[in-house]
Computed example of a mutant assay.
Amino acid sequence: MATQFAPLTPHKLKDELLTHPLMLSIGSLSLSTFMSRSIYGMIDWRPVLICVASDILAIGMDHYFDQEPMQLYALKTGNSEMTAIFKQAKVLLFSSAALLLFALAVSPPWTWLMVTIFFGPAFIWDFKLLIFGGKRQQKKARQSDEKPAQKAFSIKRIPGMKAVLIGIIRGCGTFAIVNSILARSLPVASSGPSIWNPTQIIIWSTINRACHAVMADVRDFHEDWEKQVPTIPVLLKSVFRTKVLLSAIHLLTTVLYSYNPYIVFASLYATVLVWFLNENSPRGLYRLSFHSQTLTALLYGGVEAAKWYTSYQMM
Rank of each mutant, 00 (worst) to 15 (best):
V188N: 06
V188R: 15
A189F: 14
A189D: 08
P193I: 10
I195M: 13
W196S: 05
P198E: 10
T199S: 12
I202E: 05
I203V: 14
I203S: 05
S205A: 15
N208G: 00
R209Y: 13
A210M: 14
A210T: 02
V214Q: 11
A216T: 08
R219V: 04
R219Y: 06
H222F: 13
E223S: 06
D224S: 11
D224Q: 03
W225N: 10
K227G: 00
Q228S: 11
I232H: 01
I232E: 03
I232F: 09
L235E: 06
L236G: 06
S238C: 08
V239P: 00
V239M: 09
T242I: 04
L246A: 02
S247F: 11
S247E: 00
A248E: 02
I249S: 04
L252N: 11
L252C: 10
L256C: 12
L256K: 10
N260I: 05
S267H: 04
V272S: 04
V272R: 02
L273Q: 11
L273F: 07
V274S: 01
S281V: 02
S281F: 10
G284S: 09
G284E: 06
L285S: 06
S292F: 07
Q293D: 03
L298N: 04
Y300Q: 10
G301K: 15
G301R: 04
G301T: 07
G302V: 01
V303D: 03
V303I: 11
V303A: 12
W308E: 01
Y309E: 05
